[in-house]
Structure formats: structure tokens, C-alpha cells
């Protein structure tokens, strides 16, 4: 079913969660990209980022802990190398951005908003794996409002705020993002988690994703839906099947994003689209 979320037109209600689908093109052999409701890119930052050292991944019961650290080649590289190819794919394009400072968010958004072929900007204020920015903004209502309103001023495209579940009351952060001018909320990003690595003394601290976080996601979406009945929500967090997706719609999501499931079964996102109609 085609939908319009605050000006973002999607041919169906299904996109992919940022960071789980690269820049889309990596999946081109396995997924007919134009069948997606939207492609959501991995986070793009103003300057290239090297990301975190190994270990970056560890599987846990029904989930995956990651600490990639927003490795990317920067916004200029994205525009030169990915955007021309992504523009040719006949579906909506959501570009996810992050920064260490408000200025970095704003400059990245400014540069992207000058380009053709981008349909929405998603502001990452929720990645738990970086020392500065992201979750540091998204855990604090005043900072959430400040960064979202600063990006809002420069960005005429539909603006999505991606929220972290690592807060006491997500409705407080949701309100701050909406007060700052966000059009759409996407939720949830990963849950902070530490696990051990078999055979090593080292532990990994990062963001937990996959089926194990679905209850957190559904609870928080219900809370935000109850508090803000008219706000478009893109729901995500452990969706592995069409029946999971239906639970997210029942909790109040208007659209959904498939995340970790893309790593497990690249074919799943299309099967979900086909099944939910």
C-alpha cells in the first residue's frame, strides 16, 4: 500500500533500517531495490570516519551486538559515488546523517539538501557506538530539540528523527524532536549491551539488534503513538517476518523498517512487502 508520511512518498510501507543495508547497491544482486518503499542509507557524516577497531560484531541469543562506529567515506564521497546510482532506482531515498557537533549535522544536511534525488533526511541521534554526538544528543531532550531544530532550519526535505531506546521515557525525547521540527519519528535504534566473546578475555559493548529487542520496540512505539496520535512513525527493532511487521502496525507504526534480518536473509524484505500487500 502506497503511503505519504509528512511529504515522504513511499510506494509501500516498508524500508530498511540504516546501517543494515549499506548504501543499497551492495544488495542489488539479491534484492530488486525498486520494490522497496524506500532505501535508507547507512549513516553519512561530514568527514570520512574510520569507525571502531575490532571486535565489531558478536552474535547473542536471538540478537546481534554491533560496534561499527559509523565507518563511512563522508558526504562528498557519498554524493560522488553512491548518489548517482541511487537516483536511478525508482523508489524513495532516505539519507541518514550524523555528526559529532550540531554544526556537523547542519553542514551535512545542507550539502545533501542541495542534491536532487533525496526524498528525506533521517537524523541519527541514537547510535550508541561513538564517543561524540548521536546518542549524546538523543538521550537529552534539550539537546535533541537543539540539533533537530538546527537541521530543520537548513533542510526543506521531510525530516526524520531516529530515536534511541536507551532513555527512561521515550515520549519526552519524541516531544523534543517534534518541538524541534521533526516531521517523522523512526524508532528504535539499538539497545546498549555488553557481551563476552567466546575464547577471548575481551568483551564487546555496542548496540543490540534482532528479534530479542522486538518487545522494547513495540512498547516504545505504543507509548509514542499514545502520546502523539497524529505523528508518522517508522517502526523498527527485530522485524524478521510479515507477522512481526503487522505487530508493529498494530502498535502504531505507519511504516516499518527491516534491519538485522537483511543480514540473515536478504530475500526477507521483499517477502514482507508481498505478504503485507
Amino acid at each position: 500500500m502506497a503511503i505519504i508520511l509528512a511529504g515522504l512518498e513511499m510506494k509501500n510501507q516498508v524500508t530498511v533500517a540504516s546501517g543494515t543495508f549499506g548504501f543499497g547497491l551492495e544488495f542489488a544482486d539479491l534484492v530488486p531495490l525498486d520494490k522497496l518503499g524506500a532505501i535508507t542509507t547507512k549513516t553519512v557524516t561530514i568527514k570520512p570516519r574510520k569507525g571502531n577497531p575490532q571486535p565489531r560484531l558478536m552474535e547473542v541469543e536471538n540478537g546481534l551486538v554491533n560496534s561499527i562506529g559509523l565507518q563511512n567515506d563522508g558526504v562528498e564521497y557519498f554524493i560522488a559515488n553512491y548518489l548517482p546510482k541511487l537516483k536511478k532506482i525508482k523508489t524513495a531515498l532516505i539519507v541518514n546523517i550524523a555528526g559529532e557537533t550540531i554544526e556537523e549535522y547542519v553542514r551535512t544536511a545542507e550539502i545533501l539538501c542541495r542534491q536532487d534525488g533525496i526524498n528525506a533526511i533521517e537524523v541519527n541521534i541514537s547510535c550508541p557506538n561513538v564517543k561524540k554526538g548521536c546518542i549524546a544528543f538523543g538521550k537529552d531532550p534539550a539537546m535533541t530539540k537543539e540539533v533537530i531544530s538546527a537541521v530543520r532550519e537548513t533542510c526543506k526535505l521531510p525530516l526524520i528523527a531516529k530515536l534511541t531506546p536507551n532513555v527512561a521515557d521515550i515520549t519526552v525525547i519524541a516531544k523534543a524532536a517534534l518541538d524541534g521540527g521533526a516531521d517523522i519519528l523512526s524508532m528504535i535504534n539499538t539497545v546498549q549491551h555488553t557481551t563476552t566473546i567466546p575464547g577471548k578475555s575481551q568483551a564487546i559493548t555496542g548496540g543490540l539488534s534482532g528479534p530479542t529487542i522486538k518487545p522494547n520496540a513495540l512498547k516504545m512505539i505504543s507509548q509514542v503513538r499514545a502520546a502523539f496520535p497524529g505523528t508518522p512513525i517508522i517502526g523498527m527493532g527485530g522485524i524478521m517476518s510479515a507477522s512481526d511487521a503487522k505487530e508493529f502496525f498494530a502498535a502504531g507504526a505507519n511504516a516499518i523498517a527491516v534491519g538485522t534480518a537483511n543480514f540473515v536473509d536478504p530475500g526477507i524484505v521483499i517477502r514482507i512487502i508481498d505478504e503485507i500487500g
Binding site: 546501517g19 549499506g22 544488495f27 569507525g51 575490532q54 571486535p55 560484531l57 554491533n66 561499527i68 536478504p266
Partner: peptide, 27 residues
């Protein structure tokens, strides 16, 4: 060999450090 998730170059979980920056073992 490196611990990996997607296997197709998207997740950046399996990178190794090289003189040309991080490179993906899978891709």
C-alpha cells in the same frame, strides 16, 4: 577470515586494517 554478518560488504563488521584503510574481508 573474520567474524562477519552480511557477507556482501554492507555491514562493515569484518573489516581488517590495511595500509589503504579498513578493507572488508567479505567483499
Amino acid at each position: 577470515e573474520e567474524y562477519m554478518a552480511c557477507g556482501i560488504g554492507a555491514c562493515l563488521g569484518c573489516v581488517v586494517e590495511t595500509i589503504n584503510g579498513n578493507r572488508r574481508v567479505c567483499k
